[in-house]
């Protein structure tokens, strides 16, 4: 390790095992490294992924989250086509109908508005809108799932681009080291000094609103965290024997990186990506909420929440449904990321 960064703006990267084990306050000195033990640890490398998978599946929260995420993801794809409506089709006479599902009346899906009047009966509407309709008479079921789809899409693409940039940048920085590393680290240091949300807002302002701009604005500062993780991991690995061995055998730089370094830093990378996704979902929703979002009639969860917030008193379902969906997505991603981190954390491998 070169310099220690006690704070890097992201506590997740600063886990206690990164700190050197020098004498503590109580003058206890950690046990000296035992070379044989290390060999033992390094031995089960081929079964690492299998082990990690087993550990992950033991974590109930993570498994439930994974299943829920798969369901939510599937719904976001098939949900919009589960009934005859499209996300943009308007039907003015059916505006602002509360949710109604036959058989789920006891859950509040009874088609009654805040005053307890059954709007379906009053207006003679035959069709049941499962999540109700908005003021244009658009089906909210379709729109919520379409919105989930768009939110997930934005988050996944943003996370993926963060990953690509971060891995390349961090990889180069760690691999070449020396002056290159120094310069690249100074750049990162300055970038982390910038409050990212403000930067995102400013960029959205000058770009044309739309999915592309949102993604672009989010990756401007988003890749930095990934770059740091990759660099840190690579630095640790660089000094290890198998890298040295491979180099001695004459492996080229790119081969070394691809074959030896990258696979070994996959764990932390996956964990970082998993934490990036909910952050991206949050940012997208945040931007939509303050009115810097997508082009209508496209809707993301953030857009739906913003629409719903305006009508919170008269039509609370417009807020509650997308709010529940976005919260579920975020919870699942966080729990799954937690589970993955525990599963992939080498410290847990005993």
């Amino acid at each position: 390790m070169t310099t220690i960064q006690p704070n890097d703006g992201d506590f997740k990267n600063l886990r206690s095992q990164d700190r050197p084990a020098e004498p503590s306050v109580d003058l206890f000195v950690p046990k000296p490294l035992d070379a044989t033990v290390r060999e033992e640890l390094a031995a089960p490398a081929p079964t690492f992924w299998k082990e990690a998978r087993e550990r992950l599946f033991k974590n109930k929260g993570a498994v439930v989250s994974l299943v829920l995420l798969i369901i939510l993801g599937a719904m976001s794809l098939i949900g919009p086509s589960m009934n005859e409506f499209t996300y943009r089709e308007q039907h003015i006479p059916h505006s602002n109908l509360p949710p109604k599902v036959a058989g789920l009346e006891w859950l509040g899906f009874d088609g009654k508005d805040v005053n307890g009047v059954d709007q379906y009966a009053q207006r003679g509407v035959e069709t049941n809108y499962w999540f109700g309709t908005d003021e244009f008479g658009r089906d909210l079921w379709t729109r919520v799932w379409k919105g989930t789809q768009i939110s997930l899409f934005i988050a996944l693409v943003a996370a993926f681009l963060d990953l690509v940039i971060g891995v390349i940048y961090g990889g180069i920085s760690a691999y070449y080291g020396g002056r290159i590393d120094n310069v690249m680290q100074r750049i990162i240091e300055i970038l982390t000094g910038i409050p990212n949300l403000i930067v995102i807002i400013l960029f959205i302002l000058i770009l044309e609103p739309g999915i592309r701009s949102i993604i672009l604005a989010m990756i401007i500062t988003g890749w930095v965290g990934m770059a740091r993780v990759v660099r840190g991991q690579m630095l640790q690995l660089k000094g290890q024997e198998f890298v040295l061995a491979s180099r001695t055998l004459g492996a080229s730089d790119s081969r070394l990186m691809r074959k030896h370094l990258l696979p070994n830093v996959m764990g932390p990378i996956i964990v970082t990506v998993m934490f990036t996704i909910p952050t991206a979902i949050f940012f997208e929703a945040f931007l939509s909420f303050i009115g810097l979002g997508l082009q209508a009639p496209l809707a993301s969860l953030g857009v739906l929440i913003e629409d719903g917030y305006d009508a919170i008193r008269s039509f609370p379902y417009k807020l509650l449904i997308p709010a529940v969906v976005i919260s579920l997505v975020m919870i699942c991603f966080n729990l799954l990321a937690d589970g993955l981190r525990d599963a992939l954390d080498p410290k847990m491998r005993k």
């Binding site: 909910p278 949050f282 929703a285 945040f286 909420f289 929440i305 917030y309 919170i312 008193r313 609370p316 807020l319 709010a323 976005i326 919260s327 975020m330 919870i331 991603f333 966080n334 729990l335 937690d338």
Partner: peptide, 22 residues
């Protein structure tokens, strides 16, 4: 903790306002 980390603060704020305030 998980709920607090996951639910966007503005969603939480809107719900607080609706239930406690209104």
């Amino acid at each position: 903790a998980v709920l607090g980390m996951s639910i966007p603060s503005f969603v939480f704020a809107a719900l607080l306002q609706y239930y406690i305030g209104v």
